[in-house]
Computed example of a mutant assay.
Amino acid sequence: MMLTQVDDGPAVVACNTCRHSDESRQDAEGIRGGARLVAALETVKASDDRYAGIAVQQMPCLFACTDFCTIHLRAPGKVGYVLGRFTPDEEAARAILDYAVHYAASDHGRVPFSQWPQGVKGHFITRTPPAGFVAE
Rank of each mutant, 00 (worst) to 15 (best):
V134M: 09
D89C: 11
A131P: 08
D49G: 14
A52N: 06
W116H: 10
D98S: 07
D98E: 05
I125E: 00
K78A: 03
R50A: 15
V12Q: 03
D8W: 05
A105V: 04
Y103G: 01
P129C: 14
D7E: 12
G34N: 08
I96G: 04
P117Q: 09
G84L: 07
L3K: 14
G33D: 00
A52T: 10
A64E: 12
R127K: 12
I125S: 05
V82M: 12
P117F: 02
D22P: 05
A40R: 06
F113L: 12
A52K: 12
P130R: 10
F86K: 06
G84K: 12
A28G: 14
D8P: 09
E42F: 09
M59W: 04
L41D: 03
R110M: 14
V13D: 00
H108L: 04
L37S: 06
N16P: 08
L41F: 04
G77C: 10
W116K: 01
V12G: 04
Y99R: 04
V44T: 06
H20V: 02
A64K: 12
T17W: 01
Q5Y: 11
Q115T: 06
Q26R: 15
G132D: 06
T70A: 13
T126H: 09
F133M: 09
A100H: 00
L83N: 04
A93P: 04
G30C: 13
T4C: 09
V38T: 15
L97C: 09
C65Q: 13
Q26F: 09
D98F: 02
A52P: 01
I71F: 05
G34C: 10
V38Y: 09
A11T: 08
K78S: 06
A35L: 08
D98V: 02
A105D: 08
V38S: 12
G34A: 10
L83D: 00
D98H: 05
